[in-house]
């Protein structure tokens, strides 16, 4: 059953990535150059919309909060994000869109994926040394969320109900998606 779901959800995700233009590095690079905010508006709206439905669904009990999976916060998250940003700007691909773009026939994406496999391997080998530096140590509560989820994860905002916090953020994201112009430069 889980394999059937993997195939169905994977197909939907890959299809969506291609249809919104995320497999096209021109659109990624021009988003980062602030020349074409199409993908930024799309992504902001997607985050806001999915978050709103997720928290409302959990509140009324139709979505299982047990499916949530929160990643730990550490200095490594910021540093890793910053490193990823460098390659993202050069290539116009991130791990998911690189693979998806390769599948649509972009050969530079094949090279990107090859480099990615090497980079992941380099991390596997350097993991003990990285861990010893302490950058992977939890900060800000480790696996924490802003909104209460009713799970074992620590929530940073405890005075306001989870769906209100998440709903507020969701409206912020969807609002930003709406008011952002097509280009800033």
């Amino acid at each position: 059953m889980s394999i059937v779901l993997a195939v169905v959800i994977g197909l939907v995700f890959g299809f969506a990535l291609n249809r919104v233009g995320a497999t096209n590095p021109n659109l990624i690079i021009n988003m980062l150059r602030l020349r074409d905010l199409h993908l930024m508006k799309t992504i902001l709206f997607a985050i806001g919309f999915s978050s709103l439905v997720l928290f409302l669904g959990m509140a009324v009990g139709v979505l299982d909060a047990g499916h949530l999976s929160i990643k730990a916060s550490s200095l490594g998250v910021v540093l890793g994000g910053a490193l990823l940003g460098i390659g993202f700007a050069i290539a116009g691909y991130c791990p998911g869109t690189g693979l998806a773009a390769g599948a649509t026939g972009r050969r530079d994406a094949w090279w990107f994926v090859g480099g990615g496999l090497l980079g992941a391997f380099a991390f596997m080998l350097s993991y003990p040394a990285i861990k010893a530096t302490g950058v992977l140590t939890d900060v800000l509560g480790g696996k924490s969320t802003l909104a209460q989820t009713g799970t074992e994860y620590t929530a940073l905002v405890t005075t306001v109900p989870g769906p209100v916090v998440a709903g507020g953020l969701a409206i912020l994201f969807m609002g930003l998606a709406t008011i952002l112009p097509q280009r800033l430069r």
């Binding site: 990643k71 730990a72 550490s74 490594g76 998250v77 910021v78 540093l79 890793g80 994000g81 910053a82 490193l83 990823l84 940003g85 460098i86 390659g87 993202f88 050069i90 290539a91 691909y93 991130c94 791990p95 998911g96 869109t97 690189g98 530079d108 994406a109 090279w111 990107f112 994926v113 090859g114 480099g115 990615g116 496999l117 090497l118 980079g119 992941a120 380099a122 991390f123 596997m124 990285i130 950058v135």
Partner: peptide, 21 residues
């Protein structure tokens, strides 16, 4: 450039414990 970028992106993603998705 794509090989180099891929290397940096995946090294960074693993350091961060996840990527854009």
């Amino acid at each position: 450039a794509s090989v180099l970028a891929g290397f940096i992106v995946l090294y960074g993603a693993r350091l961060a414990g996840g990527c854009t998705s």
